[in-house]
Simulated assay, not measured.
Amino acid sequence: MNLKNIVKIAVFSVIGFVLTMGLGYATGALGVMPSLYLSCAFATIVVAPVFVILARSVKVRGTAFLYFFLIGLFYTLMGMWPIIIINTIAGILAELVVGSSENYDRGNSKVGLAFGAGMFVYSLHPMIIVFFFSKSKAMLEMMGADYFDFLRNFYTPANIGICFVISIIASIIGAKFGSYIYNKFFAGRNKKSVLG
């Protein structure tokens, strides 16, 4: 992976991060309960084309990992340090889904599915933080003990199941949507295009 590819991944990661944050705030405007059920569902669908365009443009192994890792790093810089751990796992899973490096350049759905898999892991971050990082002093100061108590009460087995189903559906839709947008508008462009 050369410097040009790293810069491109960084730029697209910033775009993905901003869209994910913005859609997260928009979902939050629906209320606490809907935002917990939907978590990153809208972001998974809307941001998928950004990722697929990036991956199919760079065509280098490690793109998926670096994309998710950088988004985790951006959250860490904002004080949400558990996200870098969660997104590292998301990036590893995304790379495993892509499979061979040739899949970054093939017209199959592996890249879209990789994004969906990574976003599925990322979408679980509220419950992962509650169950694994609620004892962290930094997290308690940031989110508050009362909010952690609310989240612990919210994440019953039934609600966890609903969140899982919504995240899986959003991941599948996002994977298909990302691949569709790339194939419809960007496939076949030569290497001298804006993204080349």
Score class of each variant (00 low, 15 high):
19 L>V: 13
49 P>I: 00
70 L>W: 04
17 F>M: 11
158 A>F: 08
74 F>T: 01
108 N>Q: 13
195 L>F: 15
80 M>P: 04
35 S>H: 08
108 N>S: 12
63 T>E: 11
40 C>I: 08
120 F>K: 14
11 V>T: 12
12 F>I: 07
140 L>D: 12
167 S>E: 05
43 A>E: 08
20 T>M: 02
87 N>L: 00
51 F>S: 04
187 A>H: 11
39 S>V: 01
60 V>F: 07
157 P>Y: 09
110 K>Q: 14
98 V>T: 08
69 F>D: 04
23 L>W: 06
149 D>G: 13
121 V>M: 09
16 G>V: 00
138 A>Q: 15
69 F>I: 00
38 L>Q: 06
26 A>T: 13
89 I>F: 12
179 S>Y: 12
168 I>N: 09
92 I>S: 11
105 D>G: 15
135 K>V: 02
73 L>G: 04
131 F>T: 08
149 D>T: 14
168 I>V: 15
11 V>C: 11
104 Y>K: 07
85 I>G: 06
194 V>Q: 08
188 G>Y: 03
130 V>K: 07
48 A>N: 03
171 S>Y: 01
45 I>S: 08
69 F>N: 03
105 D>V: 02
87 N>H: 10
45 I>A: 10
84 I>H: 09
69 F>C: 03
41 A>W: 02
61 R>D: 10
194 V>T: 09
21 M>L: 11
189 R>W: 02
81 W>P: 02
191 K>W: 01
129 I>R: 14
142 M>Q: 12
177 F>T: 10
90 A>T: 03
68 F>E: 06
167 S>K: 02
67 Y>V: 01
182 Y>S: 13
11 V>K: 11
193 S>A: 14
179 S>Q: 14
145 A>D: 12
62 G>N: 06
178 G>Y: 05
76 T>A: 11
179 S>H: 14
154 F>E: 04
153 N>C: 01
41 A>M: 02
165 V>Q: 08
125 H>L: 01
66 L>Y: 04
75 Y>V: 01
170 A>E: 05
117 A>T: 03
87 N>E: 12
171 S>I: 00
182 Y>T: 11
41 A>R: 06
